[in-house]
Design a protein around this nucleic acid. Structure first.
Lengths: 188, 188
DNA sequence: ACTACTATCAACATTTATGTCAATAACAAA
DNA sequence: TTTGTTATTGACATAAATGTTGATAGTAGT
């Protein structure tokens, strides 16, 4: 029926990766097969392969995109000139948010170690350490590292198992909602 | 060549599930295909299907087994008559240990909500709340819930992303090793 | 209008995963 | 020994995912 719609290569790659990210959220890893992604993206799977080379490379590209978005969220969280506790709360939210936690869970369960630009993440956390070292009430650089680590790990764990845990602990909705704030204020 | 080795049904199921658990640890979710599991377990994949019915049922059985082991580890961690901080440390270790964190990551990324015996987990955490409410230095039941939640989420996040995070934070080995203790002592 | 480039896709080919079946054989009980 | 049960498996069947190819058709530049 409809004649071929010709997009730029970048446009197609973007559509595919956005579709793949949505399917990962909604259907889990099973949603990342190229036939399904291509169909939902409205292109043939041959076209998808033309742009990415292989199924694995598409997944790698998706992981890279999601990692980049996670970093951007973290940067945004740190850019805001707010109180230390609020900054920590932003970092918590950025990490705990569903899609990002799922990215980390995915990579963990696949046994993929972070290949490439871990240096970018490293620089980011360097910045975080620098930004917070003068405002957070900690004695040493070691304590600062510990505080950041506990906030980060708690956020990730919360993003992955928060619903179940607050359930089995019988926590009220109000206590749940104020938990991120409580965590960060307990340290900030 | 070798004649048929006949095991009891339970024996075969055990061998299969142990093999599957090992493959999940070593190869990620891709390791859970029945052909691979059967081969590594030393049986035909037809036999595997005979015992489990389908690939999905084998995975469900594996998830159940791993959940049971996680609960047993938690029970063990709580049984020990130790100081509150040490108890919290044991809970931390039980959750952070590789296999268990991977189980939770797996379920999170598959979007499976806990189907069945969540009641068992609930009872366990009830016990934990009861055991700790008199020994931990907290003001209210709400604070107790928060403390347990932060220890549990930090442990899970640590099991999933601990290596990467301690790396990008540039933490020394000594600080890393004492982190679980530090977390629990900061609250206990 | 012409050309070069390449995004697009249907059809085909291949590989892998999953599931079925009928026959065999180990083991326990009668 | 005989018999019933069922764990076991090779061979086959099916389904699903991935990858390949050749032809078609937008689009930009000349």
């Amino acid at each position: 029926m409809a004649g071929k719609r010709r997009r730029t290569a970048e446009e197609s790659r973007t559509i595919v990766l956005e579709t793949a990210a949505r399917r990962l959220r909604e259907h889990g890893l099973d949603g990342l097969n190229i036939t399904g992604v291509a169909e939902e993206a409205g292109i043939s799977h041959a076209t998808l392969l033309h742009h990415f080379g292989s199924s694995g490379e598409m997944r790698d590209a998706l992981a890279e995109k999601m990692t980049r978005e996670l970093i951007e969220d973290l940067v945004r969280a740190m850019d805001a000139r707010v109180s230390p506790a609020e900054l920590a709360g932003n970092v918590f939210s950025a990490l705990a948010e569903g899609g990002h936690a799922k990215l980390l869970a995915w990579r963990a369960v696949e046994g993929k170690q972070e290949d490439g630009d871990l240096s970018e993440v490293r620089a980011l956390f360097d910045q975080l350490l620098h930004t917070t070292q003068n405002v957070l009430d900690v004695d040493s650089r070691e304590d600062l590292q510990r505080v950041i680590l506990v906030v980060a790990t708690a956020a990730i764990g919360y993003g992955i198992a928060g619903v179940v845990l607050t359930d089995v602990l019988g926590m009220s909705e109000e206590v749940v909602e104020t938990f991120p704030t409580w965590v960060t204020e307990s340290f900030g």
